[in-house]
Simulated scan of single mutants.
Amino acid sequence: MTDTVLCATGLVMRFGGITATNNVTLNLKRGARHALIGPNGAGKTTLINLLTGVLTPTEGRIELLGEDITTLAPYRRVARGMVRTFQINQLFDSMTPLETLALVVSQQRGMAGQWWRPLGASRAVVERATQLLEQFHLGDVAQQQVKHLAYGKRRLLEIAIALACEPRVLLLDEPVAGVPAGEREELLQTVAALPADVSVLLIEHDMDLVFSFADRMTVLVNGTLLTEGDPDTIANDPKVKEVYLGHGEAIHV
């Protein structure tokens, strides 16, 4: 069994005369806590869109669990175990977190055609949904409509939905972006406690979160892989410091 769950090799993405991703190779190990960082305009979003199937690369290859998924549709990648938080962040405002998670769990278990059944009709579905609510600190708002949730709680629900899809690879796209300071700690603790068997690729500008979470980091600049290594190596790399200082941003541990 290979130790690499997600392998992107030589990815190139051109939009007309612009090369947004330039020969990027990235390997995500089993159980990884891997961060993808870089200043604004580095190409992080383009790379994630390639990995998740929103875009098809001009050149290169992507493998998930040893299977070539380079041209596979996004929903088929989800079915094979790759889930991105922003891919499923269209929350139903009129539903509650319990109803939302029960719906996702039902779909994951092949019961989507039974949506008309009462919520409590499947004990296993309700038990799994309730477990996720507790794991993501949503038990106290389980019966509130999503539109009334604090922003931090909505972010927690998005990650809970992603985990309800039973991912092998989870792409967390800036999970604390826009979350008020008072709601961040709960979110940070939840991200830190994600299951060890789920390989996580974190895309984030918040360096406190990046350095507290990641055991490996990849740095992108202008669509090109600048360097990769453990957090200490990255924090002390003069090339990385120069890039961040040059963009008016700070990198620190």
Rank of each mutant, 00 (worst) to 15 (best):
Q145T: 13
H137Q: 15
E183H: 01
E185W: 02
P167Q: 03
P175H: 05
A142G: 02
I159G: 04
P175R: 04
Q145E: 15
P175S: 05
S199I: 06
L171N: 06
D140H: 14
G182R: 04
V179M: 09
E185R: 15
P195T: 08
C165G: 00
P180Q: 08
E183D: 10
G139H: 10
A160Q: 11
E166T: 12
A162S: 11
R184N: 00
V141E: 06
A181P: 08
Y151T: 10
V176G: 01
A192S: 14
E183V: 00
D173Q: 08
A193S: 13
D140P: 02
A196T: 14
G139V: 09
G139D: 12
H148S: 13
A160G: 10
C165I: 00
A193Y: 00
A164Y: 09
L163A: 03
A193C: 05
A164M: 10
L157E: 09
K147F: 11
L157H: 09
R184P: 03
R154N: 10
P175Q: 09
R168N: 13
R155S: 03
Q189R: 15
K153F: 02
L156V: 01
V176W: 03
V176F: 01
I161V: 15
L170Q: 12
E166P: 02
I159S: 06
K153D: 14
L171H: 07
A177Q: 02
L171R: 09
F136V: 05
L187Y: 07
Q144P: 01
A142H: 01
